[in-house]
Amino acid sequence: MFFAKRNFDQESDESLMQAVANGNERAFAALYDRYSVRIHRFFVRMLQGDFARAEDLTQDLFLKVIEKAGYFDPEKSFRTWLYVLAYNLCKNEFRRPPAPVPMEETVEEEIFEKMDRELFDQRLRICIDHLGETHQTCFVLRYQEGLSILEIAEIIGCPEGTVKSRLHHALRQVCAQMEFWIYERKN
């Protein structure tokens, strides 16, 4: 029927964005429910576990989605567009002086004694955080967010070959730093 209520849960992101541009709250709620967790997690990963800042950026990002809904081109992918906005917000954060990362030198002894999952993850987080800005972005988008190489190339605005190269180097670097830990865990 013409006047039946729209079921936003089954609509594409792009058509939801058109509804958001018309001020439809339910469409925005559907979009938020789809992407808020992923985007918040992306910010947490990119900002070295700074939850408060990640929350602020998540809010800023969705405010931008509301404000710029009218400018969104429905022919393009919403997910890529959303990550472009998120990446740009992160770039502004990268320009700030980085917060000191605790290397947990004081708990080295504990690490040798207890190679549990938590400590391994902690070390892995530190390794990822210590990648360069561009390498970290590629690593997070590919291996943590699960985006395709083509999407990453569009988001950071560089050729696919460059993305592949950065991913390769980033993975090698992380693996090299984690080699000792992996070896220890095996034994």
């Binding site: 993850d121 987080r125 990822i128 291996y143 943590q144 992380v174 984690m178």
Partner: peptide, 8 residues
């Protein structure tokens, strides 16, 4: 590394 990174 990749499996752990995805779960971070």
């Amino acid at each position: 590394v990749l499996m752990s990174a995805a779960n971070l």
